[in-house]
Each structure stands twice: as structure tokens, then as C-alpha cells.
């Protein structure tokens, strides 16, 4: 038996045509027609809904917004085309006979520069080092979770509660704690790095695949409280995310809104890219 307030809320669903059960709907309509209280609640709900539907005028998106979107998307291509033109010009210049020696020297330097700075993401992952390195910390934490050496400090499947726990525990940046249909939120951990608090959270699938996520505000990179290599930073500036398959797990890194996210998991990579990472973008 519903109490009166719960029944009032059901009237909202009547207004919104969200009562599927015909008998329940008939019972509620009976109440509306025979009880002044219920009738009033129904009328209030209905009149506000109709008022918003009829009186709240829609404003068109300013055209500049759509223009800017289009420019931003295609601006990238034009920029790329310009780079190609410049490369063509440089190549023409270098292959002029009188500059042949200088050209050879510049080419050698360019090759050396390219080898040292244009690493692919796999090489970048492997080259990380140092105790304050976030990628190494993330892998280490993930292994500890699997070994049962590291549990969540705050167990909850409620994203808001975990997010609040982070803030109350001294994490001094906005954290993102989404929920997913495929993975259950297990809870959160706050680690202490010389007084700086950093947020970690974990999820698990029904099959027992574990997803461990470490999120760090980039302001802590300045004083090297925690960091990743410059190569990784540069790579993430121009790519959506970086990923690398270690022996038994996959690691993903991406940047968003001034934060670095590191995910370590043994879950199917296609699922991760389609359904996990995309929720952060």
C-alpha cells in the first residue's frame, strides 16, 4: 500500500503517460476524480507541464557557435595542408645542388631528432621511469588490487558518494566518477603524496574483469609530485589517448580538462574504448 506522498508522485507519472499498468492507471484516475487533494496535485502537475510546453519559447543556437564548430573541425585539415606545403618548400630548397652538403647535414639532424622525439606510444609507455611516475604507480596499484593487497578505502557503487569521499578526503580537484551498465563501481581510494591527495577508483564486470582508474590534476606535474615523461605529455596533447598492452593488462592514458586519466584493466579493449573512455570525453 502506497502512502499518500508516494501516490502524489504517481500522479506525476499519470501526467507524463508513464503508467503502463492499466489497472494502476484506472485506480489513480479514480482518485483524481474523487478526492480533492489528489485532484489538486494532478492539476498542479498538469498545468506546470503544459505551461512549460506552451510558454517557454525555444531559442535558436547562435550561428557563430555552429560556425566555430565547423571551423575548428576543418581548421585542423587546413593546418595539415599548410604543413605539407611548407615541407614541399623545404624539400625543394634542400635538393638545390648548391645547398647539397648543408642539406645532407640537416637531413641527418632531422633523422636524429625524429628518432629521439617521435616515439610511438608503445615506446613511450616502456620508457617511463621514477618513483613519482604515474604510469608505473598505476600499474603497481593495479597489480596490488588483483593480488588483494590493495582494497578500496571507501566501498560504494554510488558515483556521487565516491566523488564526495574524494573531496572530503582532501582531493583538491574535480573528479569524474561515472557509472556504467557493464561495470560496477567498487569504490574509491585516496593516496597521499607528501600531503597531496590523489583519487583512484575501481570498477569490476560481472565476469570479474577489473578496471582501475587513476585521475590526477596536471597542476601536480609542475612540482613533480607525480608525473609522466615529456614524451607522453606531448603524445597526449595530439592524440585522443595512448594505449599499451603490457603482459597481462592493457593501459590507457588520456587527458581531459586539465587532468590526466590512467586506466589499467584486463577488460576487452574494444569495450573499453567504446564504452568507458568515451564517457570521459
Amino acid at each position: 500500500m502506497l502512502d499518500r506522498n508516494e501516490t502524489y508522485e504517481k500522479l506525476t507519472a499519470v501526467v507524463d503517460h508513464e503508467i503502463a499498468d492499466k489497472k494502476e492507471l484506472a485506480d489513480l484516475e479514480y482518485l483524481i476524480n474523487n478526492d480533492d487533494d489528489f485532484k489538486y496535485e494532478y492539476l498542479v502537475q498538469n498545468s506546470v507541464k503544459n505551461l512549460l510546453k506552451n510558454k517557454s519559447h525555444k531559442i535558436s543556437t547562435p550561428s557563430i557557435v555552429l560556425e566555430n564548430v565547423e571551423k575548428s573541425i576543418f581548421g585542423q585539415t587546413y593546418q595539415t595542408d599548410n604543413k605539407i606545403n611548407w615541407l614541399d618548400r623545404i624539400t625543394d630548397f634542400l635538393f638545390t645542388p648548391k645547398y647539397a652538403f648543408g642539406a645532407a647535414l640537416i637531413l641527418v639532424l632531422l633523422i636524429i631528432f625524429n628518432l629521439s622525439s617521435n616515439l610511438n606510444s608503445d615506446e613511450i609507455f616502456i620508457s617511463q621511469s621514477g618513483n613519482n611516475n604515474a604510469i608505473l604507480q598505476a600499474r603497481d596499484n593495479y597489480h596490488k588490487i588483483l593480488a588483494g593487497e590493495l582494497g578500496v578505502q571507501f566501498a560504494s557503487d554510488n558515483p556521487e558518494a565516491v566523488s564526495n569521499y574524494f573531496q572530503k578526503s582532501g582531493v583538491n580537484y574535480a573528479t569524474i566518477v561515472p557509472s556504467f551498465p557493464k561495470w560496477n563501481l567498487l569504490g574509491g581510494v585516496v593516496s597521499d603524496h607528501d600531503g597531496i591527495k590523489l583519487a583512484h577508483q575501481a570498477y569490476a564486470s560481472a565476469d570479474g574483469e577489473v578496471l582501475y582508474l587513476y585521475q590526477i590534476d596536471q597542476k601536480y606535474f609542475k612540482d613533480k609530485t607525480v608525473c609522466v615523461s615529456d614524451d607522453m605529455n606531448k603524445y597526449l596533447e595530439s592524440n585522443l589517448f595512448a594505449k599499451h598492452r603490457f603482459e597481462d593488462e592493457e593501459m590507457y592514458c588520456w587527458k581531459m580538462n586539465g587532468k590526466l586519466f590512467l586506466l589499467v584493466t584486463n577488460e576487452d579493449p574494444a569495450l573499453i574504448e567504446d564504452e568507458f573512455i568515451s564517457k570521459f570525453m
Binding site: Y8, E9, L11, T12, A13, D16, E18, V44, Q45, K49
Partner: peptide
Amino acid sequence: VRSRLHRARK
């Protein structure tokens, strides 16, 4: 959702 909507309209 229903509960919030009910309160919001009120």
C-alpha cells in the same frame, strides 16, 4: 526521476 519531477513542478 519521478520524485524529483514531482517536486520540481511543485
